[in-house]
């Protein structure tokens, strides 16, 4: 059974890496959760974000950061579930509940 992987994204220029790692991990049967914070919440508006939400098991963003980046909390990014516009608790879940951790 493949290990699970949690990815914490803090860099706004790494969508290609997030997609590449997620696809590779899913191809190995891994469970993948991704959490975006601060300037990386801009990536929720990346054209690839809806696809990421489809292939990953769990995608969440920090809603406080998203609002700080100038977006409305009511503007739910395409592909994301509204309840996944969440808090830093999501980062804790990645560390506690997933076998492997990667920050990007």
């Amino acid at each position: 059974m493949a290990k699970s992987l949690g990815i914490f994204v803090t860099n706004p220029h790494v969508m290609h890496h997030v997609m590449g790692v997620t696809k590779a991990a899913k191809a190995k049967g891994s469970k993948v959760k991704i959490f975006f914070t601060w300037t990386a919440t801009h990536l929720a508006k990346d054209p690839q974000f809806p696809e990421l939400c489809k292939i990953a098991d769990d995608v969440a963003i920090c809603v406080d950061s998203y609002v700080n980046m100038g977006y409305s909390a009511d503007d739910v990014p395409e592909g994301l579930k509204k309840e996944k516009m969440a808090t830093q608790t999501q980062h804790g879940l990645i560390i506690e509940d997933y076998d492997c951790y990667l920050n990007l």
């Binding site: 290990k3 890496h17 590449g20 790692v21 696809k23 590779a24 190995k28 492997c100």
Partner: peptide, 24 residues
Amino acid sequence: ELFVDNPDYDILVEKIFAADKTIC
């Protein structure tokens, strides 16, 4: 190295799974 052209994400994931700790 993630900064090379076309990094092999498959190898990266294998290395992550083989490590006790990953620091990016």
